[in-house]
Design a protein around this nucleic acid. Structure first.
Lengths: 134, 134
DNA sequence: TATAATTTGTGCGTATGTATA
DNA sequence: TTATACATACGCACAAATTAT
């Protein structure tokens, strides 16, 4: 499965493989992935390498990790609709740790920033917000 | 500087310290941060811990790392203005590795997805795009 | 062109702590 | 209490990219 001589780092190959398996529906939203120990066995890799791959998927928002429980595919969020008035400006960026706590978003989830015509800016969690243009 | 008994992981404390120093202007955009080896000495931490802190800042888009050269604060990007028609929907998420390559964005930069009234979706790099509502 | 020094990247192992079931 | 699973943190070695000599 993992080819050390391919030039592609092992952790990236594993991340790609897991991403593909998730996309293929092998683990539907809410399902738990194999443990790190199991992955080290199945793919014949060190734990550091496995953790690195999982960390990459976290940063993409592809998986959520819960300490002491396991790793799962995020369930679909209830989406909040936000309407943007004409003259508004919409940007995005990763939240700071404080903003992450306020918005209650896991790793790998960006932030939507909507600045109204009056210059007032509001931040929304990127995993459960869609901005609709009136 | 780093308090191992505070309950806050050392890598997080270091990330916070560096983020604060960047925000204070100690390293302006384009400037290079101290090397990993230097940080291990200054903060009396292992390299693994230092790299973890830097990785966290990368995931936030606070720093950019270049192999063989060092770590720097990203320079300001030229911003592209995109206008959204009424009926459009704007969302955000982290790009896949393929999308990251296509958009040419570094780590820690989300993607803006603009879906027009016709259902056609366009993706833009979050670090140099602002969507303006007509 | 070649070499060395610097800096980040990859990967392994080990030990211990903490959260969950 | 026990077992399982993830988190933190250290160390080491070698590879690869960059820059200066």
């Amino acid at each position: 499965m993992i080819d050390p001589a391919s030039g592609v780092p092992a952790w990236r190959q594993l991340a790609d493989a897991l991403r593909d398996r998730i996309a293929a529906g092998e683990w539907p939203p809410g399902a738990r992935l194999p443990s790190e120990t199991r992955l080290t066995q199945e793919y014949a890799l060190g734990r550091t390498t496995v953790r690195r791959a999982v960390a990459a998927l976290r940063a993409e928002g592809v998986v959520e990790v819960q300490h002491g429980w396991g790793t799962r595919v995020p369930s679909a969020r209830e989406v909040e609709r936000v309407t943007a008035e004409p003259g508004s400006v919409i940007t995005t960026r990763m939240p700071t740790p404080q903003e992450r706590a306020v918005l209650a978003v896991p790793d790998g989830v960006p932030m939507l920033v909507v600045t109204g015509p009056d210059g007032m800016a509001d931040a929304y969690p990127g995993d459960r917000t869609r901005v609709e243009v009136r």
